[in-house]
Each structure stands twice: as C-alpha cells, then as structure tokens.
C-alpha cells in the first residue's frame, strides 16, 4: 500500500517534471511577460538609464523577441545576471532567454545544454591598461595583476594565453563589471581583461577615458550571442529568426523609418515574406504574419541597433569591423527568409 503510494507519487512527479519543461512560448504568452537575462550593467549592451528603463544592444534583442511573441516591446522583465549566475538562471527556468555578451562555445552548447541562436556580435578578448604604464603589447604583461570577471571564458583564455607565452600573472577574480572598474581605477590591478567590446564600453564611462588604452592583442575568438535552453526547438527558432530578421532587414534596406512603406508591399518578394505580406512564414513559426514588422519596429534593423547603442557615433565608439554585413566584408549573415 505504502509502496504503491510512493511509486505513484514518483510517477506523477516524473510526468509533471516532463510537462513543465516543454512549451516556453506558451509559458511566456501565459505570463504576458518575457523574462530576459541581461548583464548587471554594461553601458551600451545592457544598462538601466536614469529613469530605470533598460537599454542597450542586448536589451534591444530582448525587446525584439517580446515584440515578436507578445506584441509589446515593453513586456520584458529584465533579470540582471552575473557571469556566474547566468547559466543557472537559464537552466533553472528563471529566465526564458539569455542575452548577455555570452560566448558561444562547444561545452556551453553541448555540455551545459544550451542552444545558441546565433551571433549578434563577433568579439575577442582584449586588455586595457593605463597609458602611463608604458605597456604597448600584451606580451609585456609578465608579472602583472589582472582583473577578470569570474565565470567567463576570459578566465580560461587568460590562463591559456599566459601559459602559452611563459608569463606569470596574478589573477584578481571579481563578480561584476562595476567591481572590476573600482579595482582597476584604484590601481589594485594593472590590467582589466574582458571582451574588447566590453572594455570599450567600460572605458567610455571613465572620467579620464583618454588615459587608458586597449592593447592591440586580441587573444581569443568570442562570438557573442543570445541563448536558450536545450529541448525547446520552437522557442529556439523564434529567438534565432528574430535575430535573423534584424540582420536580414539591414541587408534588404528595411529601416525603422521606411518600415510602414515596406510593409505595404514591395516588388522584392523576400521583403514581402519578411513583412508577412506574402507567404506564411509567421504561421510556420507559431506567430502571426506581422511578427517581423514588430521586431524591426522596436529600434530598427541590426545596423540601426548597433549604431544607436555601441556604434561610432556613441561614446563607446565601436566600428562595425567583423560585425558588418557580409556584403560589406563582415561576418553578419542571415540565412534567407524563404
């Protein structure tokens, strides 16, 4: 009797556990809000403004997904995560989507059971030092004290780089970008290392930004992208094609300004398919026909989002470089909308 109750309970739990892990799309729709993991504050990528409204390159992607799924780019609950807490937050279902300068690696994809939906920024790990230190190359950093954000790929790259070059260093592990900034500015570490984009963004917030320089060495490949949990392909598809819609829009010349005009119908069938005026792509992905219009309506296409948040006109001043469209010699490339 007791035993069968126990077995029954176990079976019921098993069924419940199985049911709970399916259908992120339905969960998000039921909640009416997208829970999106972002960084704890990295200007240009994800940071709250003076009014507490989140903005930035990664934040805009969260808003685009919310617009596609819920029709409201403000229906996002931003969950600040550190390098250490982000994967647990995603795996446990605390967040539905993680857009936090996260490097796509084999083990994260395969072993941590996540699905990277694409690359929204091609980056590499760099070093920032004070100019008056007189260091011109990372190979001169033997014996330096280096601040690193713990729980990131940069930690592993750094160990590999210094080992490969036969140099020693003193790692100072820190939790968030803000702490790193404090330690670096007070001179408790000589070098701050993270993704070059992150360094540029951090430097932009310094009072004496010109007194700091990024060393020329980029010691790793850091393809950054949004990710979701394994096992829910539909949700992964939505995130992936939201990113692709932004990229394709730039390639096809759809901007926030001419969106209404394009949506009215054009002579280019791919634009029409993207806008939902031709074909049934929205239905295939489980959304309505105008989903991509809403995605682009949030803040424009990939190029516009880039320029507005981290581009050359901003304080961060990153050039497109590898992140230009493939037609412009970059690596940003979306599969066709067909």
């Amino acid at each position: 009797m007791k035993k069968s109750v126990l077995l029954g309970t176990i079976a019921a739990v098993g069924v419940l556990a199985g049911a709970a892990s399916a259908g992120t799309l339905d969960d998000v729709k039921a909640n009416g809000v997208l829970k999106c993991g972002v960084s704890t504050g990295l200007v240009g990528f994800a940071a709250p403004d003076a009014n507490g409204v989140w903005g930035g390159f990664d934040v805009t992607f969260c808003r685009a997904v919310a617009a596609a799924v819920l029709g409201d780019s403000d229906a996002v609950e931003f969950v600040p995560t550190t390098g250490k807490t982000r994967f647990t937050a995603l795996a446990s279902g605390e967040i539905d989507l993680l857009a936090r300068n996260t490097t796509w690696t084999f083990s994260r994809d395969v072993d941590l059971k996540f699905t990277f939906v694409g690359v929204n920024y091609y980056d590499g790990q760099g070093f920032m030092v004070r100019k008056d230190l007189g260091v011109t190359s990372a190979t001169e950093l033997d014996g330096a004290t280096v601040c690193i954000q713990t729980g990131t790929t940069t930690e592993l790259n750094l160990a590999d780089y210094f080992r490969a070059n036969g140099m020693s260093y003193e790692p100072v592990p820190i939790e968030t970008n803000a702490e790193a900034q404090q330690q670096y500015l007070s001179g408790a570490c000589d070098v701050y290392t993270t993704d070059a984009s992150g360094l540029a963004a951090t430097r932009a917030t310094f009072e004496d930004a010109d007194a700091h320089t990024l060393l020329p060495e980029i010691i790793s490949k850091e393809p950054l992208g949004p990710l979701v949990r394994h096992g829910d392909d539909q949700w992964g598809d939505i995130a992936r094609w939201t990113l692709n819609a932004l990229i394709t829009a730039e390639e096809l010349g759809v901007t926030q300004a001419n969106l209404a005009e394009m949506a009215a119908g054009t002579s280019n069938p791919e634009i029409n398919r993207l806008m939902g005026t031709e074909g049934s792509l929205g239905e295939m992905i489980g959304l309505d026909a105008e989903w991509a219009q809403r995605v682009i309506g949030v803040a424009g296409n990939y190029g516009e989002v880039f320029e507005a948040n981290i581009g050359e006109s901003t304080a961060i001043g990153l050039s497109r470089g590898l992140n230009a469209q493939w037609t412009q010699g970059g690596l940003i490339y979306s599969p066709p909308f067909r």
């Binding site: 176990i10 739990v13 098993g14 556990a17 199985g18 892990s21 795996a91 059971k113 930690e155 592993l156 750094l158 160990a159 590999d160 210094f162 260093y169 003193e170 790692p171 100072v172 592990p173 394994h230 096992g231």
Partner: peptide, 28 residues
C-alpha cells in the same frame, strides 16, 4: 526523485567525473 528526474530531463544526470578534468583557470 524530483531532483534526479529534472536533472535527467535537462540531460545532466548526477555524476562526479568532471572533478578529474583539467580546471583551466588560475588561482592567485
């Protein structure tokens, strides 16, 4: 049981083999 079921559902069954892998990070 809930823990084991959910870990299995995530594709991460309980195991301690990772302890013998190279750590890859430095400690000051």
């Amino acid at each position: 049981d809930n823990m084991l079921t959910n870990l299995a559902a995530l594709g991460k069954p309980l195991g301690f083999r990772f302890l013998s892998d190279a750590a890859g990070y430095d400690i000051n």
